[in-house]
């Protein structure tokens, strides 16, 4: 009766796709932050970390990850955009003249209402930082390793604009996860009355921790970073 496609692309199927891919992206973001913290340690640590990622399993690891991430992003975006934009506009063509938030037990927040906007800005940031960091002309360090540290720190040092944009994007990341984290559990059906309040509080903590981590990096690099710091001189 129902094909796999029609089930996967039903209203519930789309939520499951958004939730599953959301979980994967949250996991990626957390690991990405941990890796980026090597920027605080210094050029040697950061370049070594980047070098490891690019050469692991003869360079296949990073390719596999990149392909996987692109697929995950694509599913997340397409499912979420159809939920938020297309179906919503079709379902209520004539809006309310006077509409107020119900308050009380509602979980509708600025974060939940702006998922599509925070998501769009984040997508733009992801693409921008890939172009600025990954596809830039890199120098080599004395050890013959790509000096990604210099590229990253130099980018922030030379551009207040990009530093500010990064901070804004990371605030939006926090908002996105504020709703997205517990919402992913709910979308997959992994909640009940006992767990829901715990998960919504966990979402607040996780979104704040990740956002602060990602906000401190560009600010610190802008203020203190030295693109020409010598490897080993940390």
């Amino acid at each position: 009766m129902s094909s796999f496609g029609s089930v996967a692309w039903s209203s519930v199927g789309k939520k499951v796709i958004t939730g599953l891919t959301g979980f994967m992206l949250i996991g990626f973001v957390a690991v990405h932050l941990l890796g980026n913290l090597t920027l605080f340690i210094g050029p040697h640590a950061f370049n070594g970390y980047a070098h490891f990622l690019e050469t692991a399993v003869h360079g296949w690891l990073i390719y596999a990850f990149e392909v996987g991430l692109i697929v995950i992003f694509a599913f997340h975006v397409v499912a979420a955009v159809t939920v938020a934009v297309a179906d919503k506009m079709a379902a209520r063509k004539q809006g309310y003249k006077y509409a107020r938030n119900a308050g009380g037990r509602s979980r509708k927040t600025l974060a939940s209402r702006s998922m599509i906007i925070s998501g769009a800005v984040l997508a733009f940031f992801v693409i921008a930082h890939i172009f600025l960091f990954k596809f830039a002309d890199h120098e080599q360090t004395a050890e013959g390793v790509k000096n990604l540290y210099k590229t990253v720190v130099g980018t922030f040092q030379n551009s207040v604009g990009f530093t500010a944009f990064t901070v804004v994007a990371m605030v939006l990341l926090g908002m996105h996860l504020r709703h997205g984290f517990w919402s992913a559990f709910q979308s997959l059906g992994w909640t009940n009355d006992r767990w829901l309040p715990i998960l919504t509080r966990a979402a607040l903590v996780i979104s704040i921790v990740l956002a602060i981590g990602f906000i401190l990096l560009p600010i610190w690099l802008y203020l203190n970073g030295d693109p020409n710091a010598m490897p080993g001189g940390h």
Binding site: T82, A84, K88, N101, G103, R105, R107
Partner: peptide
């Protein structure tokens, strides 16, 4: 029927 998809706002539970 053309109902929209859920975004987990929880406004339904409140009303």
């Amino acid at each position: 029927e053309g109902f929209g998809d859920c975004s987990n706002h929880g406004e339904c539970e409140a009303v």
